[in-house]
Design a protein around this nucleic acid. Structure first.
Lengths: 237, 237
DNA sequence: TTTGAAAACGTAAATATGACACTTACTTTT
DNA sequence: AAAAGTAAGTGTCATATTTACGTTTTCAAA
């Protein structure tokens, strides 16, 4: 009976739906997290993840992209859903379910486009301040998912500039996994993927010899994204 | 100003929050999906995933466990969040965000406990009927996540009975990944994990010789769950 | 007693991995 | 101009793993 059917809908609780973004960046040396102070939303000026509310007529993914764009002004950012967080007490004001996404950006691309409305800052991934609500747990899960995904898919490249060096690539993977990797083995493994195009150009201003610059073979990156790649020796994930 | 802060909350849309469960089972030969007909919820009696609504004072995970328990009557089922689905048009009645979980159960454990309120049936994973809403997409993503997770973690064992044979284990992995695996290589690889305890007992009534039964070393399973295991040659994930 | 089929056990060659040291290239210092 | 210093690049060897494959054993059915 249709009336009972609609009554079932009417009896259910409704929730606010938030989108929270864990924005990872890499500056060539360290993995970082972008945090903001949403001044009007808390009494303490605590650091938090960039977030916002789901709007009518947009999908979760559209909303997540809109929210990241509001902060950093870049489109086509790598964005992946982490999952939903729905503890009844997570927001003291009103029952809220948050759908968290993580983003991967190259830090130098960001600095040009900061939206100064937000009090935003980068923090080293292993030296984070106290976070609002369950954002600490979101960050922990995002770190795990980044490790997981990066172990087997070349998403790490989303954190690099268009041109990068092998030492930078190794720094990135060492930062993601918190391990030291033998540079001879790393180099051989990474070059064996045939994802890298070696440029004639060398990095300036960083080391005496200067490292060769590489770029990603975009075509092959696309083709091989789901091919099994195992960059990391015995990943703990 | 606090009034403006609360006004921000009041301006946001609210959604119903559904929980949908992708319940995988294995019967020793085939990987299957459990579907139900929620007769009062649709005009067509279409097959759908088992689902329900988020209730006050429960977390998403509690709700997912409750909903799975309502159908199959088992507790401590392996349950993992898949993610949130929130297309504005996914439910024609009212704006709904669904948080999907997948469950792994051993089919023979289920049959004793079926709740006949639901018109439930198992379907082979590669021969599914038309599904309600975005459930087809949820199933597709759950299959991918199962493959992904099973390639590197021994969650496949959640689909097996307490005692199983090597041929059954191989059938399971072949069903999950849709590939044929060399039984000599599979056996050597699987035994090398030291996760299996060989029993003196042999399987009866299936093959002439009868395969040895094994059980899982529970202690080692727990310890090694996050250790990197790579059962599948060149997994496509 | 024979048959047939699944299960168990095993081998060889190719490939990958882990641990490791020395040479090169280039800027800075003397 | 030469020497020094340092990061980057390159290579080797032993071991482990993987891939492809064949034969023997066990047991119920014929």
């Amino acid at each position: 009976m249709k009336i009972n059917f609609l009554e079932q809908y009417r009896q259910q609780i409704k929730c606010l739906v938030a989108l929270d973004s864990i924005i990872f960046g890499f500056d060539g040396t360290d993995l970082k997290l972008l945090l903001v102070k949403r001044g009007i939303e808390t009494e303490h000026d605590t650091w938090s993840l960039m977030g916002g509310w789901l709007a009518p007529n947009e999908t979760l993914e559209m909303a997540a992209h809109r929210i990241v764009f509001e902060l950093i002004g870049l489109e086509n950012v790598y964005l992946e859903q982490l999952g939903a967080f729905g503890d009844p007490t997570r927001d003291p004001v009103e029952r809220t379910v948050s759908v968290a996404y993580f983003a991967l950006i190259n830090v130098p691309n960001y600095d040009d486009k900061i939206d100064h409305v937000f009090d935003a800052a980068w923090f080293p991934i292993n030296d984070l301040p106290e976070l609002l609500f369950d954002h600490k747990e979101m960050v922990a899960q995002a770190k795990e998912k980044l490790k997981y995904k990066a172990a087997f898919h070349p998403i790490g490249f989303e954190l690099l500039p268009e041109k990068f060096t092998l030492p930078q690539l190794q720094n990135l993977y060492e930062a993601i996994f918190g391990v030291t990797i033998d540079k001879r083995n790393f180099s051989r493994k990474m070059l064996s993927t045939n994802l890298l195009i070696k440029l004639k150009e060398k990095q300036k201003g960083f080391s005496k010899k200067g490292a060769f610059l590489y770029k990603l073979d975009a075509e092959r990156y696309k083709q091989d994204f789901n091919a099994f790649l195992n960059f990391i020796p015995n990943p703990d994930i």
